[in-house]
Design a protein around this nucleic acid. Structure first.
Lengths: 346, 346
DNA sequence: CACGATGTCGGGAACGATTGCGTAAAAAAA
DNA sequence: TTTTTTTACGCAATCGTTCCCGACATCGTG
């Protein structure tokens, strides 16, 4: 059972015209007499004719749709970014096909395959934590599929990239903790493959140095799936708390790391910020409702999505391959709340 | 600039064969000799041939993809449901195209149009709060597009429906508040157009009656956009708090209503549950991190998505139109936490 | 009256893939 | 050796749409 659409042929047959004439009438060609045009237009409206975009895609080799690959739509940052992407795409007549990798490499490859084979005109991508091999991306890019990277960018392709100033964001967060009297600042880091991990770690280290705090590698805990798996955060926290020199503050450098860190503290009756200050790199929109309210570095996710979509569509619609690529870096903003309140001497 | 895919013609030309032979070889037809098959298969792999699904869709009038229309992917309930949908769809070889209406009627119509014109094979739908006219849905359904409704169902089409027991969920929530000593229980209701609103309101009222509490219509506050717009919650809460007989408990009957209710209380220094108990109809996964931790009625969103996808695919793949439709009702589960703690006499 | 210009429209190929049908050549049966 | 069957492949239509051409009228002009 499938649903039968009205085609241009149906109109032609009903009106005793040829398909070419109908097609031209619908496209308002000058070659068609006003009477015929009206006839066709009216009949088309009457039977609710819709051009078949699949046929158009086949002919024009473009589909006016763009693909999005993110790790997880349930993540505030990504859902906000997607809203930004959609706002631009819709206004320019493009549709958006969203896929999620759930931090799984195979799924990411599958999604890219699906999107490319569905003849999307371009793709906006933030790689999964597991992605170490970029062949599935470079292959498509080399075959001229326009791709824009955002958030978690890769160096393997030369294209537009939209990121936040991860270094400064992490620096600000860490510096804020240090200035508030915390000296043993741990970091929950994301997968080591990710660009954002490297940048945020660098910011973290620089802030420590500038505050005359020695970087202790034991305070750096990597979570290969960015905290999507609770157990990896659990384990990292366990290790931190088993140390003789327990940290007095934690910088959770991703959305899921932040919430699962909070969860751990709650479950283990660790008081924030008395026992342990926490600041997150997170776009959660419930930060002020948490207990305690959560200090965060927040990314302009919506804006990032907007810009990425604009760049992609520019790329798609340009006549010849672009050679100049933009590397947009937006500022992250620090929001100080209770979870990182100044340390009180015991 | 567009990216040129390898076609079956390229293979045919390169190997001195006809397109039919190549096509059959790739499909492993018995009519093709093993040598030719190997030749084609190997060459195809070598140049990384991928069949063009657009061409296939045009020919077969099916795309092996299903559409999803929800109000907002940033909503925990929907993102969980989408994960459930995807888990089934992927395993059965279907792809999922997600769209969001953002509680906007025009966007919902647009999305449905887009999906149907993209030749999706079927659609899973939860209508927006604004949707009062269902023509865009019934039209497609009447033209034989398989549709499965979930969560916010409509009566206008006779098809499979997957919902939670909204009546019992709301009853349990309200009953729990009543049993905990609250007698002036208000409800933040969703748009009056929605099925879930009617069901949840009915459960709320029945629970009040069973606890010998008179239903007070002034305690029932409808938010036409389900709390997606903060101001409408703000206004509803203002009105509740301006009453002489202020309510002592609130049942927020949707995700966004719940969080925005909490936000209001926080902003107005209203202590939960001392000044006002709160229970939500919500799938938030941070409930235990909130301050105070939040009591909720939770829906089996993932499972709902799974079932909806299974029913839809069954519908798509059935030879003749189905006449027997299922009306799946899953239980909602009550989670009691701090925000609805037993009332202490002042 | 003849001829080009203009205005309208139809025929048919093309996009990529599948598939029913036709047909060579090779193999098997007579 | 002749006939029949099998094997292995090609031709062409099809899906819905666009667009290049060609083909008519009709009109104006010399």
């Amino acid at each position: 059972m499938k649903f039968e659409a009205v085609t241009i042929k149906d109109i032609a047959k009903a009106l005793g015209l040829s398909t070419s004439t109908v097609s031209r009438a619908l496209r308002d060609s000058y070659e068609i007499s006003p009477e015929t045009k009206n006839l066709v237009l009216e009949y088309a409206k009457q039977i609710n004719y819709r051009p078949n975009p699949i046929a158009l895609s086949l002919k024009e080799k473009r589909s006016r749709s763009i693909g999005v690959v993110v790790s997880e739509i349930a993540n505030s940052f990504f859902s906000q970014a997607i809203n930004g992407i959609e706002s631009i795409a819709y206004s320019k007549g493009y549709h958006v096909i969203i896929t999620q990798s759930l931090e799984n490499y195979e799924r990411e490859v599958m999604n890219m395959q699906f999107l490319s084979s569905r003849s999307i005109d371009g793709c906006i991508l933030s790689v999964s934590t597991e992605t170490e091999d970029f062949a599935h991306i470079t292959d498509l890019y080399d075959r001229n599929l326009p791709i824009v990277c955002f958030d978690r960018i890769i160096e393997n392709i030369d294209t537009h990239k939209v990121i936040v100033d991860n270094f400064k964001g992490a620096y600000d967060a860490t510096d804020h903790l240090a200035k508030n009297g915390f000296k043993k600042i741990a970091i929950l880091a994301n997968s080591e493959f990710l660009s954002i991990t490297k940048e945020r770690l660098a910011g973290y280290k620089k802030a420590l140095e500038d505050n005359n705090i020695k970087v202790d590698e034991k305070y750096i805990k990597a979570c290969p799936h960015g905290g999507m798996i609770y157990e990896e955060v659990d384990e990292a926290m366990d290790e931190l708390f088993k140390m003789k020199q327990k940290p007095d503050a934690i910088f959770a450098s991703a959305d899921k790391l932040t919430t699962n860190c909070m969860r751990y503290c709650k479950a283990h009756n660790i008081n924030i910020p008395e026992d342990m200050a926490v600041i997150g790199f997170s776009n959660l929109d419930l930060t002020e409702l948490l207990s305690p309210s959560l200090s965060v570095v927040r990314q302009p996710a919506f804006e990032m999505g907007r810009i990425a979509a604009e760049l992609l569509i520019k790329m798609i619609e340009s006549k010849r391959p672009e050679t100049e690529f933009e590397n947009i870096v937006l500022p992250a903003e620090l929001f100080v709340r209770e979870s990182s309140a100044r340390k009180v001497k015991k």
